[in-house]
Design a binder for these strands. Structure first.
Ligand SMILES: [Mn+2]
Ligand SMILES: [Mn+2]
Ligand SMILES: [Zn+2]
Ligand SMILES: [Zn+2]
Lengths: 159, 159
DNA sequence: CTTTTAATGATAATGGTTATCATTAAGATA
DNA sequence: TATCTTAATGATAACCATTATCATTAAAAG
């Protein structure tokens, strides 16, 4: 337990020991806005903590996800990605996903209306399907700016 | 090309040959409302067409997805799932996903308001992020009826 | 029917994730 | 602070969905 156990209090009731890998992985995720894969996290931490193994990265990410501190994104590119899940509503966001290059854009504008409708829909769905709704995913798929202009050039050349 | 080539016309411009595996896989998907994995499709077809290999199932599903006839669902349970994507708007739907048992519920009620808001949001996002939106995913995560009552029993026993 | 070659399918390879298990170290105790 | 208990770790192997290879097959054109 070297350094200030910045996140220890969060672990009450979830696990019995607050360890270096857990501190460091959570700390990395809360400092970045990127959507990191396990391997990327491993590679990044290797510089400062070469002792941490891949297995522990996976186990810790799974733990953090179960605790609700981290969101696991499964986007179909072969590896899961993880992002810190801030508790304050300001940072709640949804995603734009480029199906060509994999780019991920967070957006949090226009959410007020969106979330209001979601609440209403959730209530109706919970009642109709006897389903306890705990979270939602909203993502828009398409082409980012770069990929779009590229595909336009191609289709004009293919004439 | 045994039997009526029910789907052949759809392939114009996409591929040069309309084959038995393609016909049979697409036919299976359009007849079921389930969300089938590649292995499930392979197993099912094995009864009537033992010659079709797993590789072809994967290749065909990928083709159908690129053609827009099928939707690929990546839900994080280790295998992708596929469902027929009807062109008529009546059958457009979103999903309720049970994070405990993996159950998938299609819902198409309450979509009018939802889709209207989506259109508006899409326009704003396309403008702001120079992003060409082609599709959307909306899913609600939680516990299905069975898994919810089970978790309630457990927590009351744990007192 | 013959030809062309897109498409197939048996097989091996890939790669992300998980299971094993001996070792380590967090936190409790004295 | 030194010692103890055992949760947690990490090296390694195993798992398994998906993809790559390549010889063979069969759509469909002539
Ligand atoms: Mn994000
Ligand atoms: Mn569905
Ligand atoms: Zn892109
Ligand atoms: Zn369930």
């Amino acid at each position: 337990m070297p350094g200030p156990p910045k996140w220890r209090h969060r672990f009450q009731g979830h696990v019995s020991r607050w360890t270096v890998p857990r501190e460091v992985i959570l700390d990395l995720l809360c400092r970045t806005s990127k959507h990191l894969s396990a391997k990327e996290i491993y590679s990044y931490l290797y510089k400062s903590h070469p002792g941490i193994g891949m297995t522990t990265v996976y186990r810790t990410l799974d733990l953090l996800a179960r605790m609700g501190l981290v969101t696991k994104l499964v986007l179909g590119d072969g590896q899961s990605r993880y992002e810190f899940k801030s508790s304050d509503r300001e940072k709640h966001h949804h995603h734009l996903l480029c199906t060509k290059c994999g780019k991920i854009i967070d957006y949090s504008e226009f959410l007020d209306e969106e979330l209001e409708l979601i609440r209403k829909t959730e209530k109706k769905l919970e009642k109709k399907y006897n389903f306890k709704i705990l979270d939602h995913n909203i993502e828009f798929l398409g082409l980012c700016e770069k990929c779009y202009v590229f595909s336009e050039k191609r289709s004009s050349n293919d004439s």
